[in-house]
Nucleic acid binder design. Sequence first.
DNA 1: TTGTATGCGTTATCAT
DNA 2: ATGATAACGCATACAA
Lengths: 336, 336
Amino acid sequence: MVTITDISKACGVSRATVSKALNGASDVSPETAKRVRDTAASLGYLPNAAARALKMGRSYNIGVLFSDATGGGISHEYFSRILESVKAESERLGYDITFISKDLGRQSMDYYEHAKYRSCDGVVIASADFQDPAIIRLAASEIPTVTLDYSFDSRTSILSDNVRGVETLVRFVYEKGHRKIAFIHGEMTAVTQKRLASFRKTCAELGLSIPPEYIRPAIYHDPRSSGLETRALLALSERPTCIFYPDDLSFLGGLSELEKHGLSVPKDMSVVGYDGIPLSQVLRPRLSTYRQGGERMGKEAARLLVEQIENPDTWIPQQITVEGELLPGSTVSEIG
Amino acid sequence: MVTITDISKACGVSRATVSKALNGASDVSPETAKRVRDTAASLGYLPNAAARALKMGRSYNIGVLFSDATGGGISHEYFSRILESVKAESERLGYDITFISKDLGRQSMDYYEHAKYRSCDGVVIASADFQDPAIIRLAASEIPTVTLDYSFDSRTSILSDNVRGVETLVRFVYEKGHRKIAFIHGEMTAVTQKRLASFRKTCAELGLSIPPEYIRPAIYHDPRSSGLETRALLALSERPTCIFYPDDLSFLGGLSELEKHGLSVPKDMSVVGYDGIPLSQVLRPRLSTYRQGGERMGKEAARLLVEQIENPDTWIPQQITVEGELLPGSTVSEIG
DNA sequence: TTGTATGCGTTATCAT
DNA sequence: ATGATAACGCATACAA
């Protein structure tokens, strides 16, 4: 490994001068600076991140927390999209990314400890169970954080506009003539509560009274459970004309159940999804859904986190809401 | 930040002793060891990974390289599954994961330099363009590596059994009576070459002669391109009875094209996919496909990499092939 | 403009 | 069994 000491010897200057030259300090002559840089390059010098972190108390390393509370964090389209864009933006800003988890090896650390152990300059928290004391501890710590889809008091967060998303979808199907709308939702997370509240509120605003049995709990990304709820809806004496699914993937579970009953989409039953994953637009008919702005969310998360890291004292926590967009698709029919 | 110095003061022993006690050295009395450990715990001590890495020349950090050659590395099911299991296994073994990329900030590093800069103890290379000189440099370096789905000479690799996978599928459809089999493949990577060769070989073994126009190039994970090739196949005077798609997602592009022609699957056309992503088994009809052993591949990759890291001199490079499994589904019909 | 000295937190060597 | 000391690679305050 070639170090600044090697360069200093090769150049006949002190290590301090080499360090300065390499970091573009002003108090070093242009000639020596160039000479140092050239020999550094020719020697194949690489700074040592560990040494730098130790000395400066800054690691240029961002922790990413994708807990698998809801099962298989990364592998869900929405989260992998976010991860991808957090990664891209962080790298653009000169930061590396490290996964933060509990239990590293036989050590049992919580998230905060793990982040400290790796001297993460900040952490992006996504896909987490925000009731988990370990998450709360991290978010309440001195480590800069940005949370996705949940906002802790006085902390920075990036929120997908769930309220607007559901409202948009409800109004969309309403305008197509639907009045009997069923809502299958995922586990009761903060996100789910917002979506459900928005559903109820928008329906109320539109003068729709939704019978309680139209609102049904299922599990995100689990086609089976949404299939079962679909079956239950079809068994009602008064069937809905349109079904909201917790997400695009769950819709597929509903679809196969509908087909079993000989119902075709959207002729006999209208449906909408949520997320707008690429798959949804490849299906025929194209799924009517709401595309969350995952890329923008990830990018903003990284941007704000770095800003917070680099300006700790002037930083003002903010909540940014990223709007998505309606993908009209063709799984909602015009009726009555 | 609480350091071993703090502990040494609180305990009235030297820093050296604290270090030994914490690392379970044998030359420290059980009593002191316990006392040190207890005060460490009560003070909330955490080791500093950077200092440790600097001193020991080991970072307990594994680099993961998901270059986006084919576009959006992580976000493809197959790769996110692998990533997830690499992550899980690495953490189990006490290693953290850091993404390796080119161009960190305004610095322009290649992969090797990036890995060095972060003192990665080893690197898992996946989803990469293995012709890229930067990849080749990394794989040829002194840094322990494990590649996925490609094997460099004298290096360790984990291979999905593409040959067997395609052969299994061909024999599967053959036994259902199909003789006119078309093969739409992805970009000409090493993986694709293996699959294509296996297709040709198996067909030959079965005495099938496949006309050249049955073999068509498309793009992985791009339903559109597979849709176009499907259209081309349907335009042939002698249509195939079964179409192989590059992957499960691409099949959807074919499906919509088939539906446009009023053909239904599998009644009028049989199809098979590749990958066995969860989606494929949720669709109706269930897609006939071959499920690659992504989880096992990721787990093995992490395991072998760590083994190699921890036994550098006794290490013998190995190529492990992970078999997948046929998911019969119901998109291949019995014919004549 | 350049160099000297010091310390970041840890582990390893060698005395005691 | 314990401790003093040095060293890992780097950046900085300060002296020259």
